[in-house]
């Protein structure tokens, strides 16, 4: 009898588990936010980035550092520097140091009236299109606000590459998953600086925690004028450009 009872119990348990499991997975499947833990998001850091465009000297140390730190394949860029040259007639010339050594050509342009460098990288948008359009949940925002790619789940469809308004994503030519700037997630989660921030000799790149009002980034954003790239896209980028010219897109 007792034996029977135990059998009944386990069966009931099993059914219960099945039902709760099925409902749970169905709910998580439909409303993934239900699965997230209910803690105060302000207890965590919210990582962001600022670029002081007035200081950049176009040495591209950041690009070399990123390549060495992250094994970025040739011909692909997690970060790059654009050079803008505005001529007297209003013509805008833009180029990048895309060669293997990342050194800008001297290539002077006559009647340049205004010229500046603009480093670019993933904007780690608050409402990132790439994680919205990823069909399998391989691109996601970490609790610290970093947009990452799950290299083991990415199917390599390239939809995120098309969806990113900033051209910061690429499909890895040999590993075939979507790849992009991770803000050096492996470094920042140990309290180190991203490699590009570390390597920048002029302090152009500023990395910090928006939830920490004392961080250099928060201070900068309180004191300086800044804008984000393509705000009309509604992506709410977390990469802030200090004193950026309107020519830059």
């Amino acid at each position: 009898m007792g034996c029977d009872c135990a059998g009944m119990m386990t069966r009931r348990e099993m059914i219960q588990r099945l039902v709760t499991g099925a409902t749970g997975s169905l709910l998580v499947w439909t409303f993934p936010a239900l699965a997230a833990e209910g803690e105060d998001p302000r207890d965590r850091p919210l990582y962001a980035y600022a670029v002081d465009t007035t200081r950049c000297i176009g040495c591209c140390a950041c690009m070399r550092a990123c390549r060495a730190e992250n094994d970025v394949p040739d011909g692909c860029f997690r970060t790059w520097i654009e050079r803008y040259r505005v001529r007297a007639n209003g013509e805008v010339l833009v180029d990048v140091a895309a060669g293997d050594d990342h050194v800008f050509e001297e290539d002077p342009v006559p009647d340049t009236v205004k010229a500046f460098f603009v480093p670019k990288l993933c904007n780690h948008c608050e409402k990132s299109v790439c994680s919205q359009v990823c069909p399998v949940g391989a691109t996601y925002e970490t609790p610290e606000g970093v947009v990452l790619v799950d290299q083991k789940r990415c199917i390599g469809c390239g939809y995120c590459v098309q969806a990113c308004p900033y051209g910061t994503r690429f499909i890895h030519p040999t590993k075939h998953y979507a790849d992009k700037c991770t803000l050096c997630y492996h470094r920042i989660s140990r309290g180190e600086l991203p490699a590009c921030v570390l390597a920048c000799p002029k302090g152009v790149r500023i990395f910090g925690d928006l939830h920490d009002p004392e961080s250099r980034l928060s201070t900068m954003l309180k004191q300086r004028r800044y804008r984000v790239l393509k705000p009309e896209m509604g992506t709410h980028p977390k990469c802030y450009y200090l004193d950026l010219d309107f020519e830059v897109v």
Binding site: V133, G137, I155, C157
Partner: peptide, 12 residues
């Protein structure tokens, strides 16, 4: 994966 973990915010 597109059927195992379909991310329905994505059109794909």
């Amino acid at each position: 994966n597109i059927m195992i973990t379909p991310h329905f915010t994505s059109a794909m």
